[in-house]
Simulated scan of single mutants.
Amino acid sequence: MSKIIVEHNPSKDHLATLGVTKWPTWKKEVSVFPWVFPEQEVAYLLEGECIATLENGDTVKFGKGDLVTFPAGLKIQWEVKQPLYKHYKLDGNALTQVFRRILLKIKG
């Protein structure tokens, strides 16, 4: 099984090389919900604290200042403990992203 990779407090140089400030942002209130990652996502948390529970029951904690990589196909249960605000980048382009989501719907 693929795992979540958490890089705590990455350097400003590393974030600049990735172009994090140009990535879109997303916010989520305190909540619990299931999620499937159709493609790899890399996220940089500007605010918040979260726990991701994998299908096997393992948990991964991450929060403000962390750079987190979620592999394609990963299924988790999000627990947003403190309101989340993040930059994120998805693998692929808009066309491949739509295609992956359609495949997920078909597979059910």
Rank of each mutant, 00 (worst) to 15 (best):
V42H: 00
Q40C: 03
N56H: 07
E47M: 07
L95Y: 12
E47C: 05
P10R: 08
V42L: 04
L90K: 01
Q97G: 05
G57W: 03
K3Y: 12
L54V: 02
L67W: 05
D58F: 03
N9C: 00
Y44K: 06
E55Y: 05
F37I: 02
K64P: 05
S31C: 15
D66G: 11
W26A: 11
V6E: 00
Q82E: 15
N56T: 05
H14S: 14
D66Q: 11
K81A: 13
K107H: 10
P83M: 06
D58W: 03
V42M: 12
G108S: 14
E55V: 08
T25K: 15
K3F: 12
R100E: 13
V80L: 09
E39A: 13
P83V: 08
R101D: 06
N56K: 01
K28R: 15
L84I: 10
L103M: 12
Y44D: 00
G63T: 01
V20W: 02
E79D: 08
F99E: 14
G65L: 06
L74G: 08
T69S: 14
L45W: 05
N93P: 03
I106L: 14
F37H: 08
K27C: 08
E39Y: 08
G57A: 07
K12I: 00
L18W: 06
D66I: 00
Y85M: 09
D66V: 00
G57E: 07
L15Q: 06
I5S: 10
I106D: 05
H8V: 11
V98S: 10
K3D: 14
V36H: 11
